[in-house]
Design a protein around this nucleic acid. Structure first.
Lengths: 132, 132
DNA sequence: CTATATGCAAATAGTTTGCACGGAT
DNA sequence: ATCCGTGCAAACTATTTGCATATAG
């Protein structure tokens, strides 16, 4: 199990709770605090919301996971991976990953000369295939 | 005062509190709930946080203003205007507006065929002129 | 005059903290 | 054996709601 390593590398002890958080995020992609709480509750009936929060916080700090803030919605979390964009479907509200070339965008932003831009976060609004 | 119209158009009564919220946002650009509370408190000593929240909520609903969510920071609000991007300076944490051509970006996102993209929100991280 | 906004207090939601116990290394 | 994680309860912070009064139209 590679998740194990991911945790060890960051000096985080491997616990079943943490593994399940990571596993769920891996499978589902994007989950809110409540999503995670409900999901983990299925396997760990007495899990506490505090545990979810503590783990989200420490794993975010260690960049194992990261928060995705979305207009008009609760934040969700995802495993940290290669930089990418998101699409929020305005029908089903699902969130999808998108691999984009943001090179030109960064160049454009830098060309104004007022800023030294290092990274970008792009979020799209639209409709997904299933909802079209 | 044009703000007056902005409110009337949306069936919102013109109150000094609302005018000041709009005025502050116009001048300062991006303010958090607390920023606004502190700012309005100067003129209206007995203003309530509830008033700030109620006004932010209704004006957001009517699209007079809008929330800007930023990674690792409190949300701020701005007057609704032409679509634009934001730069967050990682030194001073100020937020700047940026007028970008996102045409290519949208095209790129649409060209994948999996989504029908209607709009984008772009946020840059970098350093501003003063902090360089 | 009527409808809506304000300010206060209370209620609710969301998140964090401290501590005793249990599990990982 | 030690350190860290978990779960619980309590604390705290953020936001919303209900109501009486005040103000805009």
């Amino acid at each position: 199990m590679e998740y194990d390593n991911l945790l060890k590398k960051n000096n985080l002890k491997t616990t079943p709770q943490r593994l399940l958080i990571i596993e769920k995020l891996h499978k589902e992609g994007h989950l809110s605090v409540d999503d995670l709480y409900i999901a983990l509750k299925e396997r760990f009936i007495s899990i506490s919301l505090a545990t979810i929060y503590k783990n989200i916080n420490i794993m975010t700090q260690k960049s194992v996971i990261q928060e995705v803030k979305i207009p008009n919605q609760k934040s969700v979390y995802e495993l940290t991976k290669q930089e990418h964009s998101h699409v929020v479907c305005s029908k089903c509200n699902n969130i999808y990953d998108l691999q984009l070339d943001t090179h030109d965008l960064l160049k454009q932003a830098n060309s104004l000369g007022d800023f030294c831009i290092s990274s970008s976060v792009v979020l799209f609004n639209g409709t997904c295939k299933e909802c079209m």
